[in-house]
Nucleic acid binder design. Structure first.
Lengths: 221, 221, 221, 221
DNA sequence: CATGAATGAGACTTCATTCAT
DNA sequence: TATGAATGAAGTCTCATTCAT
């Protein structure tokens, strides 16, 4: 219609089609939010559809069942979660303490503080009802995360920065406060409560690092 | 009825009656186990009854609804959870590091490693659907636990054993690995998985304490 | 309450229980009637329940799904359908023509003219959607019926009453008009029609026998 | 578009248009096949469209609803079914037995053994849900068929070839085995079965005629 | 004309809860 | 008190039909 914008006309798909391509992601986003808020069972599939701005039936054009929708949400939210951290660790040049601090801060900024982090709460609650997810979560999240942090600790030990410590255990101790904080955000943290313990993630993270890095480092004379 | 057995009647309640008095607890136990395993929504009330060895109808003689049963499970499992720790802390005479180590080991032995610890997973997953529980959990668990650990850290600082650190944050860092480990036990840890990261609670706890106490303590010359 | 009727009190199950025992059959009867009237797919499971005087949910206490209900209807309606005929044939002493006439008349009276005969229409229409039924129907209905009629014809041939003819084909020719008449009863025959061809089963059966027996019999000089 | 092919354009409609004109029939054929295979309710309208090589929406350009499609399939498959037989009978010059034999063999060849015969199964199963079809089927199929066969029998009686017998009843007896065989083809006959009774249509028809014509004919001395 | 994404009424099925026994 | 048969609201999913492109 407008000869001045032929490129745009040619490049953009028609509105309907653009919708179609965006739908799966819109549905996944809606589902993620609701699953995190209410859990799998308490989320009605029609709610998901409504939140994504479509009707009940449309949801089923893209996902064959509520269960499959759930698994898709988990898979796509978790996929490529760790990759960034691994890359960061490989290229890092500073001290191992700085590396760990950077890793944790980055994780929190990019993921821990976003809605996607809520998926961990849901997985924690539902794995036993979805055995396929157990292996997936282990392979895609637990093992890579353990490897990433264990690797950093090992690096510190090798470079004489850290005391020798059991790797897995130390990695768990390092990660737990952050993950637990993420979990709490979408749980108690989302409820209106009188007299809640005040907890700022940034200050929490700072203190945790302060504590634990000092615990890791060899005591300089 | 039978005059030949008056002593038994007087000393013990008859089996039927003993049963009756034990019912509520049996139902709570059954419900706890199932809620931890499958979550609130996925647990059918008939299952709870069956596992407690009674019929569906009987459950409703003791609890007016599945929701009330759930709340009762949470309340009674969590009640007096912290009291023991508080008492222990008050009477403790050793160093603050030893106090913290004792607290954590005791918590793990008495609670973390028992089925009752699973309730935390359920609460984490379901609070947002049960607003009453949020306040209860905060008041009965979060706040007391924070107070207990913050108190110990304060004690350490006051006694010149620990560096001054933000109390709440440090308390969170101390508790997280233990709680998170408890959560995992009833989640991924209960699923059959190939290549799971091997994690022994005792060694985990030891390493965590090693790390974090060294982080707390003032550097002796 | 009434000491004069203790026997009755003891013998009869309480009303509730009597109901429970009768339910499956009541549901099967209701289902048979509706499946015959409207077909499998067009019958709503709630209708079946209503017609049996119970609620939707009750149906599912006795049958796990509409499909299983359907199969149960088919199985129980067809079971032991042929047995009576086989017995009759074995004990029969008269001429083979009389035997065939008796068989057909008996079949019509006992089965063909009852609601149960409608099941054949439903099976005819639905077997291709329920492969399990195909084998069942073949084994329990087709093969025994063929064997029964083929046997009678063979008996006639052996006794010199009937001409030698291909057994299966002749059996089919003998049975078809009766079965087809039964089918039609529950199909067109149940619809209000102007100018329907008038067809009395008794006279139809008489004519068919007249025709076909004369065709079977050896021409006496 | 291409001036080099004007002749083709003029003589035949272009492919697109030829397609358009053929659409209704292609849809009817697809629908017939599916309705026969799965019944009315179990056939999805999208399947019909797919099988006809068009999209779901296109089906609705030609038929306003699935019900109307069904009725159209029935009407057009049955229309002019009997005409051929009537004409054949009117022009026939041989004996009445030969006429009947010819009629039946012709019916079987031209119709009974073709996919279109399956429509009888569907009508049998669905008339009660489609009252309009009842009258149509009666008027266009039942009555003409009865008239045709009754007429042939009457002809035989008039010519002294057949015994006097009730016309409608005899006509039913004559037609049933053939029709029933056609029904079975699209029912059990289309299912994979172990130990099915072997039944060749040709030999079946031969035996039936052998039986029934002998039954009809006056006994020559 | 043709498409196929979208709709939403409606069917099947589950399960918390009730209540006659 | 205990039972378990019965209920029916509510949720999942299907599919005939519509309509923007």
């Amino acid at each position: 219609m407008n000869a001045a914008l032929p490129a745009a006309d040619a490049a953009d798909p028609p509105a309907r089609q653009r919708r179609k391509e965006a739908r799966p992601q819109e549905l996944l986003d809606a589902a993620l939010a609701l699953f995190v808020e209410k859990g799998f069972a308490a989320t009605r599939s029609e709610e998901v559809a409504q939140r994504a701005g479509v009707s009940k039936g449309t949801l089923y054009l893209y996902f064959p069942s509520k269960e499959e929708l759930f698994k898709a949400v988990v898979r796509q939210t978790l996929a490529s979660l760790i990759a960034e951290g691994v890359e960061l660790a490989e290229q890092f040049e500073g001290s191992s303490s700085e590396l760990l601090a950077t890793l944790m801060q980055t994780w929190w900024e990019r993921f821990g503080s976003t809605p996607a982090a809520g998926i961990h709460k849901v997985v924690l609650a539902e794995v036993r009802n979805f055995p396929e997810l157990a292996q997936f979560y282990n392979d895609e999240v637990i093992v890579p995360a353990d490897r990433l942090f264990s690797g950093c600790i090992q690096r510190g030990i090798d470079r004489g920065e850290f005391r020798p410590l059991p790797l897995h255990e130390a990695a768990h101790a390092l990660m737990s406060p952050m993950i637990f904080m993420a979990l709490c955000q979408f749980s108690l943290g989302a409820c209106p409560i009188h007299g809640a313990v005040d907890m700022d993630p940034a200050s929490m993270l700072r203190t945790h690092l302060d504590l634990v890095l000092r615990g890791l480092e060899v005591r300089s004379a």
